[in-house]
Every structure is written in C-alpha cells, then in structure tokens.
Write a protein that binds this DNA or RNA. Structure first.
Length: 437
RNA sequence: GACCCGUUCGUCUAGCGGUUAGGACUCUGGAUUUUCAUUCCAGCAACAGGGGUUCGAUUCCCCUACGGGUUGCCA
C-alpha cells in the first residue's frame, strides 16, 4: 500500500509558520516514500472561514514549493476535498455508529460513547502514549454532531482520513490528546486508523506559544521581508528535525532524500529570526548573479529604483553583502540614483585623516586625465596618487569609498569604480570632497 | 485543578552507559583581503534539581521544579 499523507488546514487566518512546517513534514514524508500528498480544507466553521485565508493557504504552499497531488485545482479519486462539500460522505458513517449504539442524543446534539478502557497509541514521533478512558471525568463522551445537524471536527477528520485512505497523519502536537479519541472512532467504525505522528510546536523567541500576531508567525511575511522560499523551507525543516550530521543547508530535494520521522524531535523549539536570516544568506549565495538580480527586482521596484540599465550589474555587486533581499535597495541606491546622502559617521572617519581632503582633490584631477578606465586602472591610479602625496594606498581607499557611495561599507571598491565610470567618479569625488571639507 | 508531552551552550541541535559533551546561529578576538564583504582560525557558553540502578550516568527508573499541550455543540 502506498503512502498517503495530508495537510488539513482550516481557512480561518493566514498560513501560520507552524502550519507550514506541518505541511512541509507531511509533504517530505510523502515524497520520500513515493506517495501522495493530499490537501484537504477543513472549512466546517462557517463563521470563521474567509476566502482570503483559503488563498493564503494555497499561495503559501505554492511559494514554498509544496505541490499537492489531490485537492484544490487537482483531480483526485477521493474528493471533494473541501469538508463543506462532503456532507453526503458523513451521514452513512454516522448511521454505522447509530446502529452500533455508539452514539446517543443529548440536548439535541449527538455524543459518541467512548469505550471505557485504556487506549494506547503508537505515535511515530512520541512513541507509546496511553490515556485511560475509564476515568470518565477526564474523558467525557464527545459531541460529534451538533444540534444543527452539522458534524464536529473529530468525526469529519476521522471519516475523511478513512475515506481518503490516508496512511500517515502527520500533525502538530496540540492534537496529541485528540488521537485516542480518533482511535476509538476508527475502532467503532470498524476501520483501520492511519499511523499518527505528532510534531512539536514552534514557540516564540521568549518561549511562549507562537500564535497569530506574533512576529514571524505569518508565512506571507517572509516573502515580503526578502526571504527565499528555499531558505524558509530549509530553516523550518531544522526546527524539530535534524539531519543527524553537521550539514545545515539543504535544497528541497536534499531534504526529501534525508527526511525521516525517526529524526523528528519531541520537544518544542523557538523561532530564531537571526539564524533564519543566516540560512537565507546561504541560499542567496547559491544564486548566480542573474537569478539574484531577478529575485531582488520586486524590492528595487518597490523602493522606486530603476530596474533596467545598470540594475542587474549593481545588484550583482551586493549579492554577497546582504542577508535579506529587502536590504538590496538601500545597498545599491547610490549606484543607480543621481544623488545620495553622506553617512555622518563615515564622514567623521574620513575627517580623522587631515590629508584625506587633499588626496581626494588630487585623485579627482588624476582621474580626469586617465585615458583608459577600468577597475584595475582606477585602483592603480589611487595607489599612484597616494604615493605622489607620500601616503599609503590604503589611506586613500576608504575616503574614496565614502566619497563615491556615502557609506563606509558596500561593494568592492573596484566594482564601484568600474560601474560608475570615470566621469561620474570624478564628479562625485569633487562634490563629496566639498561636503567633507 | 486533572490528564498528557517535553527539559543538552542565550537560540537550533548531535549524543542513544565510559566523549577533552560535537556542530551551527549570535557575540568577542585574530588571519587573509592595499577598501567592503566573503572565507579561515581561535575564544566565550550547556547536560534543570534531587534520589536511585550500575564499577560507571547527559544517556535507564522515580520524585520535584519549570515549559508546553489538552480539558468546546473551534479546528
């Protein structure tokens, strides 16, 4: 029997990073075993469902690269894949329970009669867990059908997993205590239950439960902040799962090859934005210049920078300098704009050397006389100008950087000189020297 | 409160009876780079506490503390 996993979100908010990771692990497990990944939308709570939330789920999964085999936009043998459209599937199973006298009416609602015995689950992550249903006060019979005739989560979740032939239900740990209830339902229905795997929750940096509104909770924020989907997937995989080696940077394909539920933790982990940014930087480093420029383009456009002409070349110069794509516009602004601001702190450092101003003026003159312009030629001239004034080349490099970019950090100076060209360099040298003096 | 799960550097983690407790992020130094960054090297930093079991416990058991989850006619 081939593996079938599912992701079963309810469309009541944006896609949460915890949900995204649950989806990731389910997807990885299915792909690892050549199985199917089903996307089922649990939209039975009409009051809280929104179309925006539905779209956030679909677009979020697509952004991460987690494609589903059955569900929204796909055909499949076990549909429909929206719970709101599955009413007809539930009634027959409810009848089975009624015939077996496993349900009884109470205040208009129908409750499932638990068998009063210890129930042991064999969780693929948590191991054996036993809940004693003889303690009725702790495990009251649960409502599975409301007085308005609609079915409750526990019942539809079980019936859907059954009807959809789900073999492995991978879900977050907040469902752990639901599992023996579901196991009882499967047993009463006379059907085999899927194997369950409960993965630990993701917490806030301070250890509190990460929920809506918390920083970093919404998956949609990550693209806006300049994260690459491959980096988010990579980082999420490292939360609660370990490759059991010192390697940390993986592509989605590499994760599929290495993933296993045995290597999933049992303890909750906190979300560390710093490390997530570092992982993103590592993924950025794997992009070639053209791909990097393309990925950063939306951010440049949003910042009002022109994305034709020098843009691709400018973006390429900062590929190794940024951790997030959102940092690109500020990093290349001086290369594409006509005017830029001088950072006061950088100017102070230049002023610390009394000779800097004269050196810059001399360099502007010498640059103007240069016939051939290239990174090498310009850098060579910096050395010559410095030497002529009895200074070391290094003493002039930093002032030139500040005069041309306004900042103390940035791309390689040779790259800056080459991209700006002789005339712009001379003009900026003169203009900035005046301001520095 | 009851029930369940968990607890290794600040954070993510390796470890499955005997290790100088390893790696990564962050931070701090240094090397390289005539600039910036990358890179490299070094350093700081952990087994929650108490009992057992054992020749020997971070590893196994119990208790306590702490954290999290569940306790809905939400999912």
């Amino acid at each position: 029997m081939s593996v079938r996993t599912r992701f079963a979100p309810s469309p009541t908010g944006y896609l949460h990073v915890g949900g995204a990771r649950t989806a990731l692990f389910s997807w990885l497990f299915a792909r690892k075993h050549g199985g199917s990944f089903v996307l089922r939308v649990e939209d039975t709570d009409e009051a809280r469902n929104t179309p925006e939330a539905r779209d956030a789920i679909f677009s979020g999964l697509k952004w991460l690269g987690l494609d589903w085999d059955e569900g929204e936009g796909k055909s499949g043998d076990y549909g429909p894949y929206n719970q709101s459209e599955r009413r007809a599937n539930y009634d027959p199973w409810f009848e089975v329970l009624r015939e077996k006298n496993r349900v009884y009416e109470h205040d208009g609602a129908w409750r499932f009669r638990f068998e009063r015995k210890p129930v042991t689950m064999h969780d693929l992550v948590c191991g054996e867990v036993t809940i004693d249903y003889r303690d009725e006060s702790n495990t009251p019979d649960m409502v599975i059908r409301r007085s308005d005739g609609s079915y409750v989560f526990h019942f539809v979740n079980v019936v859907d997993d059954l009807d959809m032939r789900i073999t492995h239900a991978i879900r977050a740990e907040d469902h752990l205590m639901n599992t023996p209830k579901h196991l009882q339902l499967f047993e009463a229905l006379g059907a085999p239950a899927p194997q369950y795997a409960h993965i630990p929750l993701i917490l806030n940096p301070d250890g509190s439960k990460m929920s809506k509104r918390d920083v970093g909770a919404a998956l949609g924020d990550y693209s806006r902040q300049g994260f690459l989907p491959s980096a988010v997937v990579n980082f999420l995989a490292l939360l609660g799962w370990s490759p059991k080696s010192d390697e940390e940077i993986f592509t989605l394909d590499e994760l599929v090859a290495r993933f296993s539920l045995e290597a999933v933790n049992r303890s909750p982990s906190r979300f560390d934005a710093e490390k997530c940014a570092w992982v993103n930087q590592q993924h950025l480093l794997k992009l070639d210049s053209a791909a990097f420029a393309e990925a950063a383009k939306p951010f440049a456009q949003a910042a009002g920078l022109p994305v034709d002409g020098d843009y691709p070349a400018a973006a390429a110069l900062v590929r190794e300098k940024v951790r997030l794509l959102s940092e690109v516009p500020a990093a290349i602004h001086f290369l594409l704009a006509d005017s830029f601001d001088l950072d006061p702190e950088a100017v102070e450092k230049v002023r610390a050397n009394p000779a800097a101003k004269d050196l810059l003026s001399a360099l502007a003159d010498d640059f103007g006389k240069l016939a051939d312009w290239s990174a090498e030629a310009a850098k060579h001239q910096i050395g010559e100008t410095a030497k002529a004034a009895g200074a070391k080349p290094g003493q002039l490099m930093f002032p030139v950087r500040v005069a041309l970019s306004g900042k103390s950090g940035g791309p390689d100076l040779g790259d800056i000189l080459a991209l700006l060209g002789r005339d712009r360099c001379v003009a900026r040298l003169r203009a900035s020297t005046g301001k520095i003096g």
